Simulated assay, not measured.
Amino acid sequence: MKNSLGWTVASALSLLVSGAVAEKAVAAGWKAVTGKPAPREEDQVLSYRLGEVVAFAVISGAVMTLTRQLTLRQAAKIHARRSGDVPGAGEAPALEA
């Protein structure tokens, strides 16, 4: 089943907003724990130890992935409730959590 334009727009907007919120949350958490800003810019990354950069990458990746999945699940529930069209219906079955 082809995705509707409404679902495409809703999912894209919700992912953009949740990604920005997750990025801010990770940066604030990193600063609270380490006392240093999150390593983002090239000149900042060079001043951090390798372990710090790896830890930040793992943490931020995990938070972003979890945020993306939870956001899409909630957006799909809302879209299905409003339109009666379940995004992803007819595709490969999802794993139940």
Rank of each mutant, 00 (worst) to 15 (best):
M1Q: 15
M1F: 14
M1C: 12
K2L: 14
K2N: 14
K2Q: 14
N3Y: 14
S4L: 04
S4H: 06
L5I: 14
G6V: 04
G6Q: 05
W7I: 01
T8P: 01
V9L: 08
A10E: 04
S11K: 06
S11D: 03
S11E: 07
A12N: 08
A12I: 11
L13Y: 06
L13P: 01
L13W: 08
L13N: 05
S14N: 03
L16Y: 12
V17Q: 05
V17P: 00
G19P: 04
A20G: 15
V21R: 03
A22H: 00
A22P: 06
E23M: 15
E23T: 14
K24D: 10
A25F: 10
V26R: 00
V26G: 00
A27F: 12
A28C: 10
A28M: 10
A28F: 08
A28R: 11
G29K: 01
G29F: 02
G29I: 04
W30A: 00
W30C: 00
W30M: 00
K31G: 05
K31Q: 14
K31I: 04
A32V: 00
A32P: 04
K36D: 07
P37V: 02
P37Q: 05
P37S: 03
A38W: 07
P39W: 03
R40L: 12
E41K: 13
D43R: 07
D43I: 06
Q44D: 07
Q44A: 07
V45H: 01
L46Y: 08
L46C: 09
L46E: 11
L46S: 15
L46Q: 11
Y48I: 00
Y48Q: 02
R49Y: 04
R49C: 10
R49E: 13
L50C: 10
L50A: 11
L50F: 14
G51C: 08
E52R: 03
E52N: 08
E52M: 05
E52G: 08
V53E: 00
V53W: 02
V53K: 02
V54W: 05
A55L: 09
F56T: 01
A57W: 09
A57C: 07
A57I: 09
A57Y: 05
V58F: 11
V58H: 10
V58P: 07
V58N: 09
I59P: 01
S60D: 07
G61A: 03
G61S: 04
V63F: 08
M64N: 13
M64K: 13
T65S: 13
L66P: 09
L66Y: 14
T67M: 06
Q69S: 09
Q69M: 10
L70D: 10
T71K: 02
T71R: 01
L72M: 09
Q74W: 12
A75P: 01
K77M: 12
K77Y: 12
K77G: 09
I78A: 09
I78R: 06
H79R: 03
A80K: 07
A80M: 06
R81A: 12
S83C: 04
S83V: 06
G84I: 07
G84T: 06
D85I: 11
D85V: 10
D85A: 09
D85R: 10
V86I: 11
V86M: 05
P87I: 02
G88K: 01
E91Y: 15
E91C: 15
E91M: 15
E91Q: 15
A92T: 15
A92I: 15
P93K: 12
A94N: 13
A94Q: 15
